[in-house]
Simulated assay, not measured.
Amino acid sequence: MAVEPLLGTRAQRAFVLTIAVQAIVVIVMVGLTFNRVRQEVVFTNQYKTLPCYLSLFILAEIFELAMAFDALRLRNVIELLGIIFFHAALIVFSALQVHESRVALVTTNCPPGTAAWVCSGGPGSLWRKVEPFLIVAPCIIGASWLFLIFWIKQLYEEFGWVIFHVVGANPKLKSMYQYYQILICLLKFDFFCFVGVTMQLLIVVLSDNTAEFGITIAAIPVVLFLLSGCAFAVQREIKWLMGVSLALMLAAMTYLYKLVRFYEPSSQAEYSSTRATLTTFTIVAFLLLLASFCVGVRCFLDFDKGLHESKVNGQSYRPVKIHKDVFKLGGMSERQSSYFTGGAPLGPRISIE
């Protein structure tokens, strides 16, 4: 019989279902907000917060769902914990959007041809009509976060011994492998933060005839090369490529200068409706990149120390067909039997009394 296939346990199915249901509800709420505003205003720079908000939430929910399947496929406890932190960040982001949507909709500088009630914040205004939808989003995400913590606790018990299976009982190898998993997880979240910041700048702020727009576009392939190159280098232990990736990470950290642009008098008006979100994304992206660099250096120092095969082959999971009586000699549980390297079972153990 097949043992623990992907989504083969209640905890796995409930974990994915929780993320999927909250994603659908939140996207519907944001979509209703977007549609209601679109009926009343033209999406000029002042109102571009809403389409950007919708785009970011769709991206975030798809990313989180993909990460959930990836974590379950790899039986990766560290990635599951990363999803918990990411989900908490979504609560903060959705709460910030309530504030930023109000800044965009409630204004004294009402665009020409727009009814006064659209720009006011009183009863019957456009803001009052969309406010409930915006408030529902962080509430739903917060409630689902509690459910995810419960399911991840069960998944931890289900997957917790996988690192032992991949690298054995050697504490040093176990530590090195955990740092490798942390780096791969950080690189995935680096990708989301980079895409999130870039999307906000391109949709909301930058004009396509400015140098800053061109620089932002040019940075996209560089960052993608950085992230994919670093992941490939650390897995295959390619020293020159890892060195280039770490150097590019240091260079990319200078992106923190954008914070000055958000607040300096000459440009702060451009970022008025997205300043809080952009600031949060930029700081989080910087901290993630700094953490990736530090962990990357640690992983680089662990090259050629016997972990190469585990990194290349250890994360491939394939459920296998077994029979219960195979494990009577080894004293192995049926759950443990699903984690064979390349499908090869461990031999029976001999105990000396």
Score class of each variant (00 low, 15 high):
C110S: 14
V326D: 09
E212S: 07
A233Y: 14
M249A: 10
G168Y: 07
L56P: 01
L278P: 01
L56S: 00
Q22K: 09
A252I: 05
T198H: 01
G343R: 09
L288F: 10
I203N: 00
L287A: 10
V197E: 03
V223F: 15
I24T: 12
K188M: 04
L173C: 06
R349A: 15
T198S: 03
I27R: 03
L227F: 15
W151C: 01
F86L: 08
T18C: 06
F189E: 07
R38F: 15
E79N: 07
V92S: 01
V320E: 12
G196I: 01
I283L: 05
F159L: 01
A285F: 03
L227G: 03
C294I: 14
E237K: 12
G121H: 07
A247Q: 00
I91H: 01
V28C: 13
G121W: 03
F57Y: 10
I84M: 05
F340T: 08
N313Q: 11
I19K: 03
V98L: 09
R73M: 04
P171N: 12
L307Q: 10
I19V: 14
T210D: 04
A89I: 06
L259E: 03
P348F: 11
V118D: 05
N76R: 12
C230Y: 15
F340L: 09
L74V: 06
I220L: 12
L65R: 05
W240G: 02
S338T: 12
E64R: 09
A66G: 11
T280E: 01
F43V: 11
A71D: 08
A115Q: 13
L224A: 12
Q181R: 12
K48W: 02
I322V: 14
M332Q: 13
Y271A: 00
Y53C: 04
I135K: 09
G342I: 02
F262L: 03
S228W: 15
L224R: 08
D325G: 08
L290A: 15
Q39T: 06
N209P: 02
G296Y: 13
L278Q: 00
T198Y: 03
A291L: 14
R335N: 13
M176W: 11
F281G: 00
I350E: 10
V167C: 07
C185E: 10
I283T: 03
K258C: 02
L59C: 03
V98W: 12
D190A: 04
Q178E: 15
G214S: 14
G243V: 09
Q22H: 09
L32A: 06
V234H: 07
D325F: 15
R38Y: 15
S316R: 12
A11G: 02
G296T: 04
V130H: 04
Q178P: 01
F85A: 13
V16A: 11
P138H: 00
K305E: 15
G347D: 11
V166K: 14
S292Q: 05
A66Y: 15
L186P: 03
E158I: 08
G306E: 05
S94G: 05
S245Q: 01
V166Q: 13
T18V: 05
S101W: 13
Q200V: 00
F281L: 06
G8S: 03
W145Y: 15
L59V: 00
V162A: 08
W117D: 09
A11E: 08
G229L: 06
A231F: 12
L80C: 07
